[in-house]
Design a protein around this nucleic acid. Structure first.
Length: 289
DNA sequence: CGTACGACCTGCCCGC
DNA sequence: TGCGGGCAGGTCGTAC
């Protein structure tokens, strides 16, 4: 579910509740998500303070005063929700009071912070993952070390992007969803970026011209930036940490728009749907070539 | 090494 | 109403 913009929205939401706060307890309501949770996770992070929260691609990086970093990936259906305790009934955890709360069966991990705030990790499909690693080793972590440049960062250059596309025999759509080539795009934003660039997702990556690669690089930055400004895309599962939806689905031009007229005002095309490597693609077969 | 595909999981929606 | 099939924002391991 969550692509770069949604993870960024979650990060911005978590910052205000977690930064500078002490973790009083880490509760595992099951011992595995996609993989087993790290050994001794509760003991290793208990009593540490949250220094800051960063994002790399679709991963959240929570830096702790214990000199370790918690890495969280939301998979397809993961959510992080903030629970604030303003109820009457409370239970003591250490020196802190938390109201009693009915957890759902997909509430897998609860992070208890001082001041009665809890962060709930909910993930029906359990494709998400959590790990803990020494902060100074963070970018050697196997999940992070092979990621390509951040499209909104300073080291995403369109000439390098173009040269990498030239090496690929796969479709342009599969190429830009390859996290090693460029980090953070998923199915929705890959297709939206291609629509704005008027490039067909079916085109071979190596056939994309230099000027088109430049257009695509700009479109990717614009689409991601606008999606973040709109609070992300909430098709089904995605929510902000306070439960709010994002509004970028109103700005989607092709994703999910099967049989609709192309949103380009000078185009009379109809949006098509096709499978590419098992994933659904949408595109206009008139203006996207 | 690049590429393609199945696997991992649950819930929901559709058609019969 | 119930059941089976297909679908969903992602990533990894394996086989060519």
């Amino acid at each position: 579910m969550p692509e770069l913009p949604e993870v960024e929205i979650v990060r911005q939401g978590l910052i205000q509740f977690m930064t500078g706060k002490r973790i009083v307890q880490f509760e595992q309501r099951r011992s595995d998500l996609r993989w087993p949770l790290p050994k001794n996770m509760p003991e290793r992070i208990a009593n540490s303070k949250v220094l800051n929260i960063l994002r790399r691609s679709k991963y959240l990086l929570i830096n702790l005063s214990s000199q370790e970093t918690m890495i969280i990936h939301l998979g397809m259906s993961g959510r992080l929700l903030v629970l604030k305790d303003e109820d009457e009934t409370t239970t003591n955890i250490g020196n802190f009071n938390f109201s009693t709360h009915q957890y759902g069966k997909h509430d897998h991990v609860i992070i208890y912070l001082e001041c009665g705030v809890r962060i709930v990790y909910n993930d029906p499909r359990r494709f998400g993952a959590i790990d803990l690693i020494s902060t100074k080793e963070i970018f050697n972590h196997k999940w992070l070390k092979n990621l390509g440049p951040e499209p909104l960062g300073n080291d995403f250059y369109s000439d390098h992007f173009y040269k990498n596309l030239k090496k690929r025999k796969s479709s342009i759509k599969m190429a830009i969803m390859d996290q090693g080539l460029i980090a953070g795009l998923g199915n929705i934003y890959a297709l939206e970026s291609l629509w704005h660039s008027r490039i067909s997702p079916l085109r071979k990556a190596c056939d994309v011209e230099k000027v088109e690669a430049e257009t695509l690089a700009i479109a990717i930055k614009n689409v991601l930036s606008l999606a973040i400004e709109a609070g992300g895309t909430s098709l089904q599962d995605f929510r902000h940490v306070g439960g709010e939806v994002g509004y970028f689905q109103q700005s989607l031009k092709v994703y999910g728009c099967l049989n609709q007229q192309c949103a380009n005002s000078d185009c009379l095309g109809i949006i098509q749907r096709v499978k590419q490597s098992g994933r659904t693609s949408y595109y206009c077969n008139n203006c996207q070539t």
